[in-house]
């Protein structure tokens, strides 16, 4: 029931630039529904980015990260065609993993 993470990874001059947008409500647990009930927290807790099998960035999120979180960073290495994967898990045990080839 989750949507793919949109990932763009471009290698240039020995450095790979990665940008992504995950699809997630990032519900804070503080908002109330129209009927006045608290909407339970539902948010991504951790994100792992791997180049081939090596973790290049690991992140932990709180509910303070925006809905549909975006993330951008750079790492040394990476070549056109290499696999780059982004996996996330949320506080309810949901999660997904998406892989792209570095452009």
């Amino acid at each position: 029931m989750t949507n793919p993470t949109r990932i763009r990874a471009i290698a240039k001059d020995g450095i790979t630039e990665v940008r992504m947008r995950m699809s997630h409500d990032m519900e804070t647990g503080q908002r109330r529904s129209a009927s006045g009930e608290l909407i339970p927290a539902h948010f991504i807790t951790s994100v792992t980015v791997r180049h081939k099998d090596r973790v290049v960035l690991a992140a932990e999120f709180s509910t303070s990260v925006s809905a549909n979180p975006s993330l951008a960073f750079r790492f040394e290495g990476g070549a056109k065609g290499d696999e780059l994967s982004v996996s996330w898990v949320d506080n309810r045990g949901g999660g997904r993993s998406d892989t792209v080839q570095i452009a």
């Binding site: 450095i15 990032m26 804070t28 290049v56 960035l57 992140a59 509910t63 303070s64 990260v65 925006s66 979180p69 975006s70 993330l71 951008a72 960073f73 750079r74 790492f75 040394e76």
Partner: peptide
């Protein structure tokens, strides 16, 4: 990995 990250927060 460069110590340079960007995201968006509430």
């Amino acid at each position: 990995t460069m110590a340079d990250v960007q995201t968006s927060i509430k």
